[in-house]
Every structure is written in C-alpha cells, then in structure tokens.
C-alpha cells in the first residue's frame, strides 16, 4: 500500500517520530533602547503542524515570524529551522535553507509592474538563479509550467499575463500564495494573510490557503487577528502577551474566553 505525505505524517506522529521543523530557545528581541518586544520565548513546531500565533497589536508577532526565517536577528536565544541553527548558517547555506521556506505577507508584496506569471516564477529564485527567472518571457518551459500549475491551484491561470498592480486584493493574495507554494516549500510563514481583504475575500483566501498547505503537508506558522480563523485553521494556538508565551495549546482545547484574555 502506498502512503501519501499526510498519511505518512500521521503514522510518524502516532509513533512519536515526527520531525521538529522549528525550535526556538530563549528568544529575545528589542528595538533600540525600548523595552524588549519579547524575551525568553521557548517553543517548537513539528513537521506538518499548522500553528496560529495570536496576540494584541505590538506583542511582537510579526517580529517573531521574521526572526523564525532569519530575516531579523534576535538579541538572544537560538532558532533551529528545518534542523539547522539559523545563526550558524550564512551565504549559500542560508539561501539553501530558505529555498525550503516561504513568506506570505499582509501586503501581498508582489512586484507591481510585472505580470502575475513573472511574480510566481520569482518563487523559484531560491532554487534557480539568473536572468531566465527574472521575467516569464525568458523563463525555461519547466519553470513556466510549474508556475502555471501553482496558479491553477489558486484559480488564477486566466490572469497569468495581467500586471500584478491591476489585480483586486483577493486576486493579488492568491498570486502571493501561488508564489510561496511554487517552490514546494516545507515551512511557510504567513503574516496576517487576510488582514487587507474584505471579510468575504478573506474567508475565501484563508480557506484556499489552508486547504492547499494542509493537502501538501507544509508546516505553517501564521498570525491572525481573526480569532475564528486561528481556532478553525490552526492545529495549535500560540498566544503572545506581555512579551511571553501566555498560551500554548491545541486549538480544540482553547476556549473563546482564553483567546479574549490574550487581547485584554
């Protein structure tokens, strides 16, 4: 019998063999002379988990996400991503590590004047370098095919040649998701992926995004101010409050009152 990746994860989880994709130990970060955004954070995320990071504004959720990908350097503590200590990697090794990660941002962060297809092909730049991956017109056939397949997953193939700055908010975020997924990442970070969308578009995009990452077995750490999103899509809730982790529990065991206390 052949097992797909999800079945395999379930088997390994049941056997207690699931790999740790992200491990943070004693993490601290401050900006300038202000009080620390957070300090002494310890947590880990197992392969295939979908973890919702919640907390009030200013509790350091976005900062923590960026530290996890090595985009910001913490003042203290260690982060191990996909089995490698980020601080000990540099240059080519860090790029190779990041080639297995992705970031979906609140602002979508597409290159405005380029086509949708070019933007998605950029998601392959971690694994491929050079002018052939800068614009879709120069891209190799397999890169174009991979990008179109990623656009197909988010229902955007019909707009492949449209300029990114001529998309609606929901379309733009779908393209950003396709760009993040085209390189088959193992670990994805999403920083309030629906914050700039209206409620209906936000629901659609969130359902699509979470459906895709769970089907493909991608480990996800996402932030959201939408309590319902966090409880529905997160397997586990990490709550930040006062620079500490105030809540770390499976989403099925977390009550709405506990969630509300994080914002109190």
């Amino acid at each position: 019998m052949l097992l797909n990746s999800r079945d395999l994860r379930q088997c390994t989880a049941e056997a207690g063999l699931q790999a740790i994709d992200l491990q943070a130990r004693g993490l601290a970060k401050r900006f300038g002379t202000a009080a620390p955004v957070f300090s002494g954070l310890d947590f880990s995320i197992r392969q295939g988990d979908c973890v919702a990071l919640v907390g009030a504004n200013g509790t350091g959720k976005s900062t923590l996400l960026r530290c996890c990908l090595g985009l910001l350097v913490p003042d203290a503590g260690q982060i191990s991503l996909l089995g490698r200590a980020i601080a000990e990697t540099g240059g080519a090794a860090r790029r190779a590590l990041r080639a297995r990660t992705g970031l979906v941002g609140q602002k979508h962060n597409l290159v405005p004047r380029l086509s949708v297809l070019s933007n998605v092909i950029h998601g392959l730049l971690g694994q491929n370098s050079g002018p052939r991956y800068w614009v879709q017109g120069l891209a190799p056939a397999e890169a174009r095919a991979a990008a179109m397949a990623a656009l197909d997953k988010v229902g955007m193939t019909h707009l492949a040649l449209r300029r990114a700055d001529r998309l609606s908010g929901g379309q733009s975020q779908r393209v950003a998701i396709a760009r993040a997924l085209v390189g088959n990442p193992r670990f994805l970070v999403a920083d309030e992926p629906c914050a700039s969308l209206d409620p209906q578009a936000g629901e659609e995009v969130m359902a699509l995004f979470m459906g895709l990452v769970k089907r493909e077995g991608v480990t996800v750490l996402f932030t959201s101010h939408n309590v319902q999103h966090a409880l529905s899509y997160g397997d586990r809730i990490l709550g930040l409050q006062g620079g500490r982790i105030a809540l770390d529990a499976p989403s099925t065991t977390v009550s709405a009152t506990e969630m509300a206390q994080l914002y109190g």
Binding site: A99, R100, N109, H122, G123
Partner: peptide, 19 residues
C-alpha cells in the same frame, strides 16, 4: 515587501535586485 518575500525564498541579492 517584495524584496523581503523573495529573500524568504532564498533568492540571491542580484536576482532580487533584477526581479
């Protein structure tokens, strides 16, 4: 933003500048 998104995928600086 786009620079950060491409950095997170492991792109080189020259590729990020050009893309």
């Amino acid at each position: 933003g786009p620079t950060e998104a491409l950095t997170a995928t492991g792109a080189r600086r020259i590729d990020i500048a050009a893309s």
